[in-house]
Write a protein that binds this DNA or RNA. Structure first.
Length: 505
RNA sequence: GGGUGCGUAGCUCAAUGGAAGAGCAGUGGCCUUUUAAGCCAUUGGUUGGGAGUUCGAGCCUCCCCGCACUCACCA
């Protein structure tokens, strides 16, 4: 470990403590209360007109120190909050006060025993009778104070450089308390999703992350290798094909919350690994799934934020059901002026687009072309929660066709803040239709294109046993957390986002 | 992968091609109720790395590394 000058000074303090027989990293801490508990006790005692709690022991990290000669104030913080410690020469003695000033630094963990009180200014305070080091911090926390320039106060956050914040998330969490709030909100989101689905009779399962055949989405996978079995394996790109096997096995309502891995570009809304929620619901269809989605997201808003009106990127989002619903065909007709149903082939659609002067890649399939149109002309305008429904068949190989319309499938995607949040369909359960969809996909992609949907024979075998009609759903949990915490980049809601490896000296 | 921008002390930021600075943190003092405490003094730099142009480079040129934004890609 390479030490800076500031760190060398702190190592010296460790050595001096040990020379005095004081262990700077004792094995145990013995707090009697958390900071929050202590504050609550103090307030309760005051309300009841009783003496505040005496002889309590509190532990935490020193975040501020104000030495004033024969007394010192410190702000000490644990995960529940901060409380002021008050060291006075009268109680702790001259020697200990000198020890505090010479060997204790910002960032150190300290334990203090004493009496709860309030100072003259009303600050809740532990009047310390005795204290000890719990853990010496060697590296100074990246905390900065504010600067006064030409009479103006310039506020500096403790740590703002995004690279350092993500690479040293531990330091970010210490000095930027709002970051901790994002991740407690994230935990509440996941918990609420679980509770909601549990309450609706869904069973949570865990399916393979290492898969011999990847599928369920169009994405390039990460590849790995099992040494003893001498077998190539892929990190899953979705849970879909395994969860639907469970419908065959009579698990009628099933869900999984876990990590997907996609070997693709990173962006403000893409991380190579991300948290996905998928559920499958026997005897339901995409309309029922739409309704359940609205209820589920509203419940998350209620439980996590206490409101369904959420500020995101300067705009108020209203998550009250029902969401806006737009048929893809109608949406494109209004904005692009082309009725996709009148153009059942890529050639015909391309010609119509040229006629309208709409830029597009004519070499794509019909579905891919339409997809390009929706992402360019429709999605960015879906700020309020919006379902777009009824998608082209050739980009939806696992979705069931609309009755009487083989070119269109019963599928919807939910958009919020101009960003895709979820994707769902009435699931295809006809094994022969499914087989031909896999074959179609195989033809649509080049052999070496890893997005090519590989044929999954076992999935077809499962379906051949009979799969109940069902509706399925997938949602990017990270994106939901972005929306609810007003973050415009996915890195802010992932504790340790992927960054390029950096050469260490 | 392409384009644009950024990288200076532990943190946040200054510095016409001409002596590398400030605030906070740190260190040494003063200070018995502070609240971003205050006052006095003071340490700290391979200006991301390398090469070049120049009498002289933090600043200009080239290469490399990393990050940000953006485009492409992306069920």
């Amino acid at each position: 470990m390479e030490l800076t000058d500031l760190e060398k000074i702190r190592v010296e303090k460790v050595n001096r403590l040990r020379e005095r027989g004081i262990e700077p990293y004792p094995t145990r801490a013995n707090p009697t209360h958390t900071m929050q508990e202590a504050l609550t006790l103090l307030e309760a005692a005051e309300k009841a007109g009783e003496t505040p709690p005496q002889n309590v022991t509190l532990a935490g990290r020193i975040r501020a120190m104000r030495p004033m000669g024969k007394l010192t104030f410190a702000q000490v913080e644990d995960g529940t909050g901060r409380l002021q410690f008050f060291f006075r020469i009268n109680e702790v003695g001259e020697e200990n006060l000198a020890l505090l000033s010479s060997e204790y630094d910002l960032g150190d963990f300290i334990e203090g025993t004493g009496n709860l009180m309030r100072t003259r200014t009303g600050e809740p305070t532990l009047q310390v009778l005795s204290f000890r080091m719990l853990a010496k911090a060697i590296s100074p926390l990246p905390a900065a104070k504010d600067e006064v320039v030409d009479g103006k106060v310039i506020h500096h956050a403790g740590l703002t450089d995004p690279e350092t914040r993500y690479r040293q998330r531990y330091a970010d969490l210490v000095v930027n308390p709002e970051v901790r709030k994002v991740f407690t909100a994230r935990a509440a989101v996941v918990k609420t999703l679980r509770n909601f689905l549990d309450d609706h009779g869904f069973v949570e399962v865990e399916t393979p992350i290492l898969q011999p055949i990847y599928g369920g989405a169009a994405a390039r996978p990460f590849t790995t290798f099992h040494n003893q079995l001498k077998q190539s394996l892929y990190l899953r790109i979705s849970f879909e094909l395994y969860l639907k096997r469970l419908l065959v096995g009579m698990v009628d309502r099933v869900y999984e919350i876990g990590r997907d891995f996609r070997n693709e570009g990173v962006s403000f809304k893409h991380n190579p690994e991300f948290t996905q929620l998928e559920f499958y619901w026997a005897y339901a269809d995409y309309l029922k799934v739409m309704e359940l989605t609205e209820q589920m997201v509203a419940e998350v808003c209620d439980k996590v934020l206490g409101t369904r009106k959420v500020m995101y990127n300067g705009q108020e989002l209203d998550f009250n059901p029902p969401w806006r619903r737009i048929e893809m065909r109608q949406g494109l007709l209004e904005v692009v002026g082309v009725d996709i149903y009148e153009h059942p082939t890529a050639e015909s659609l391309s010609a119509a687009l040229y006629k309208k002067g709409i830029e597009h890649n004519p070499n794509l399939t019909r579905g891919k072309m339409i997809e390009g149109l929706t992402s360019d002309y429709l999605e960015p305008s879906f700020i309020q929660p919006t379902f777009m429904y009824d998608y082209p068949r050739d980009i939806s190989p696992l979705a069931k066709s609309k009755p009487g319309d083989p070119n269109t499938v019963e599928r919807f995607e939910g958009f919020v803040g101009g960003m895709e949040l979820c994707n769902a369909f009435t699931e295809l359960n006809d094994p022969f239709d499914q087989e031909s969809r896999f074959l179609e996909m195989g033809r649509a992609y080049e052999k070496e294109d890893e997005e090519r949907h590989p044929m999954d024979e076992d999935y077809l075998r499962a379906m051949a046993y009979g799969m109940p009609p069902n509706g399925g759903f997938g949602m990017g949990v990270d994106r939901l957390v972005m929306l609810l915490t007003d973050n415009r980049t996915i890195r802010e809601v992932i504790l340790f986002p992927h960054l390029r490896e950096r050469e260490e000296e």
